[in-house]
């Protein structure tokens, strides 16, 4: 229940933050507005990617270690998919990082 409220609060906070940026530049030139949105997109993009990647890598390593602890003889069978999974998760975060760099370069 607490998680649901926290999630709802964070989503509401996100909408308020985005709306305030979008409305603040009503009288300002459009270029500033676009720059603000680009900065927001880069920031939120890398934040979401880092959050998801950290969660994924944490779960993968935890599950791998638990499997190895329960059955040490299966270490090699668990190890390879774990490495591949970690590399894939990291690649996705790097994609987001590249896109964030590109967006920041447009500022």
């Amino acid at each position: 229940m607490f998680r649901k409220y926290t999630f709802s609060f964070l989503v509401a906070l996100l909408f308020v933050a985005v709306a305030s940026v979008a409305m603040a530049a009503e009288g300002a030139p459009a270029a500033d507005n676009v720059k603000a949105v680009i900065a927001l997109a880069a920031g939120f993009g890398i934040a979401i990617a880092a959050f998801g990647g950290a969660m994924g890598q944490g779960k993968a390593i935890a599950a791998g270690l638990e499997g190895i602890a329960r059955n040490p003889s299966a270490q090699n069978k668990i190890f390879i998919p774990m490495i591949v999974g970690l590399a894939l998760i990291e690649s996705l975060v790097i994609y987001a990082l590249v896109i964030a760099f590109v967006l920041v370069g447009k500022l």
């Binding site: 894939l88 790097i94 990082l97 590249v98 760099f101 590109v102």
Partner: peptide
Amino acid sequence: IGVVYLVVRYGGFDLLGFLLGLSSL
């Protein structure tokens, strides 16, 4: 992260090609 930053910022490579290369995994 440092290498990717250097490549994207100063490498002057085509970004679509760079992302395609990263997808080889």
